[in-house]
Simulated assay, not measured.
Amino acid sequence: MKIAIAGGSGFIGTALTEKLTSSGHEVFILTRNKENKPEKENVTYVEWLKEDTEPEKELNGVDTIVNLAGENLNSGRWTDEQKKKIMDSRITATRSVMELIENLEPKPEALINASAVGYYGTSFTETFTESHSKSGDDFLAEVCQRWEEEASHAIKHDLRTAYMRFGMVLDDEEGALKQMLLPFKMFAGGPLGTGKQWMSWVHIEDVTGAIQYAIENRDISGPVNVTAPEPVQMNEFGKTLADVINRPYWLPAPSFALKTALGDMSVLVLEGQKVIPEKLNNSGYEFHYPELKPALEDLLT
């Protein structure tokens, strides 16, 4: 298949490109600048979001578009300016994807659009599946709701559209896990906040696996929770992490200190949601890492 990826040079996009090309697919990475990009087999760089570029001319016959583009949530304290970047980057990129779809003939079969479990808002007690239609009322929920709303315009072009709601992605080089490891390596790891908040995590291999599964299976559409089948509370996550890297788990980080340090971004670690990947489970996707300890052992040992 021919697959175009917006955000293909980012954390998830890079891993996805490797996954897809190793499976025999041809990948087209949409980029603002294709100069000095590393040459890879079955990978073509296509310029977009620049004046006078016409990416549609290089994407004739593309089967699927994957939209991962957007400012990293972990790229800095959530000031008003940073929040605007987070929101605007996703809306602008997704509108550009819609424009690309309008200009493509023939149309792709599917749009696979990134989102996040933050769509549901936060809760210590509720369990969320894809059948939960109401979004939360905090900033991240608003971002996800508007992001998905923009992507939904692909449906009018008869594209099968899936919204991949990612949990906290675990990887040994990128993302939140690398930041969480630091205090443990300094023998100062411990509970974050109350420790009772839910963490819906997912191994990077299952992120790319789930996206490929959605690309290749025409029955997959609408919201798709991309989380491991067994979410854990933060206390269990921390204790498991400490056990895997042979470090103590004892020094708590109080909520007020984290809120002071991180501002609104503290919601990512102090509050969470228990999310179940019901659609992937019911459709037959087999998780590589359904349980936390083997996932951490794979990444950290």
Rank of each mutant, 00 (worst) to 15 (best):
N103A: 13
L104P: 00
L104Y: 08
L104G: 00
E105M: 04
E105I: 07
E105L: 04
P106Q: 06
P106V: 08
K107L: 13
K107R: 15
P108Q: 04
E109K: 10
E109I: 08
E109D: 15
A110R: 01
L111P: 00
L111Q: 01
L111G: 01
L111C: 02
I112H: 05
I112S: 02
I112G: 01
N113P: 15
N113C: 14
A114F: 13
A114H: 14
A114T: 07
A114I: 11
S115L: 06
S115E: 04
S115N: 03
S115A: 09
A116V: 03
A116F: 07
V117W: 10
V117E: 03
V117D: 00
V117K: 05
V117C: 08
V117I: 15
G118P: 04
G118F: 10
G118C: 09
G118M: 09
G118K: 01
G118T: 00
Y119Q: 00
Y120R: 01
Y120N: 01
G121N: 02
G121W: 05
G121A: 03
T122H: 13
T122Q: 07
T122G: 01
T122W: 08
T122I: 10
T122E: 05
S123I: 05
F124C: 12
F124D: 14
F124N: 15
T125S: 12
T125Q: 12
T125M: 09
T125D: 15
T125I: 09
E126P: 04
E126T: 07
E126V: 08
T127P: 02
T127R: 08
T127M: 13
T127D: 03
F128Q: 00
F128K: 01
T129A: 02
T129P: 04
T129Q: 03
T129C: 06
T129F: 05
E130C: 02
E130L: 08
S131H: 05
S131M: 08
S131G: 03
S131D: 12
S131A: 14
H132R: 09
H132C: 10
H132M: 06
H132E: 09
S133K: 11
S133T: 05
K134A: 14
K134P: 03
K134V: 15
S135R: 07
G136P: 03
G136S: 04
G136W: 06
D137P: 06
D137F: 11
D137V: 10
D137H: 13
D138T: 04
D138I: 06
D138S: 10
D138W: 06
F139M: 07
F139D: 00
L140G: 00
L140W: 02
L140P: 00
L140F: 12
A141C: 06
A141V: 02
E142N: 14
E142C: 10
E142G: 12
E142L: 10
V143R: 06
V143S: 05
V143D: 00
C144A: 14
Q145R: 11
Q145V: 11
Q145F: 11
Q145C: 09
Q145D: 14
R146M: 15
